[in-house]
Design a protein around this nucleic acid. Structure first.
Lengths: 111, 111
DNA sequence: AGATATACCTTGACACACGAAGTATATTGA
DNA sequence: TCAATATACTTCGTGTGTCAAGGTATATCT
């Protein structure tokens, strides 16, 4: 992971919600997808990931259920709620705003 | 300040270094400039600002000196060091990278 | 039988942001 | 003249998110 995680701090929840916008999924798979999508540049540490799930669940943005007993280790699936979708939309707008702001603040040219 | 500060967490140092790339300056003025540049959308809380100066100074990225005794309250000026300029360049690249990464991770389309 | 991959969980420590409160000086205006 | 406001810096304590470290458990591969 070549990216310093602190620069993504605060966006963890949005990243997870984005994955759940594509459909129910479980932690390990979500993290794998993120790693694939970033060409191995970024992935959550497990503690960060599961802490985030707890936080999102407590906030009512996702719900959780155990997957059917199939082969392999048990999986805990997560589903985004309406409130979660709402938050996701808001966070995406915030990101657009943050992006523009930082672009402006990291530019040394005179305005 | 309409922006949720947590989404900018981790970029405080880079923002300050950017201001100092334009020349020596003191805390209050730096913050004013940032507020102007963002149309009042963002500015550091004083505790955050002065904590950051201490951190940057301890890391050898900036140096500090008291301004000449002019009228008004005393000012503590900061100057960016070579190490600071180096860090600034690196942080700017990190930001480009982070930007691209987040844009990808917050997109619900299939790749 | 042992290694590896999958999959989840908890604890404790640390860093950053910030609310709150304080210090001090110069200017503005009633 | 004296209170309010703006300028300017400082410190303390608290909260939150990240993560290193450690743990549990199942299935597959050699």
């Amino acid at each position: 992971m070549s990216i310093s995680a602190d620069t993504l701090r605060g966006h963890t929840d949005t990243i997870i919600l984005t994955q759940l916008m594509r459909g129910d999924n479980y932690g390990y798979e979500i993290n794998k997808t993120i790693q694939q999508r970033t060409g191995g540049q970024y992935g959550f540490k497990e503690a960060t990931l599961y802490t985030a799930f707890k936080r999102l669940e407590a906030a009512g943005l996702i719900t959780a259920y155990w997957g059917e007993d199939g082969p392999g280790a048990r999986r805990r699936y997560y589903s985004i709620t309406d409130a979660g979708r709402e938050t996701w939309r808001k966070n995406c707008q915030d990101w657009q705003n943050t992006r523009a702001l930082l672009d402006a603040l990291i530019n040394i040219e005179e305005e």
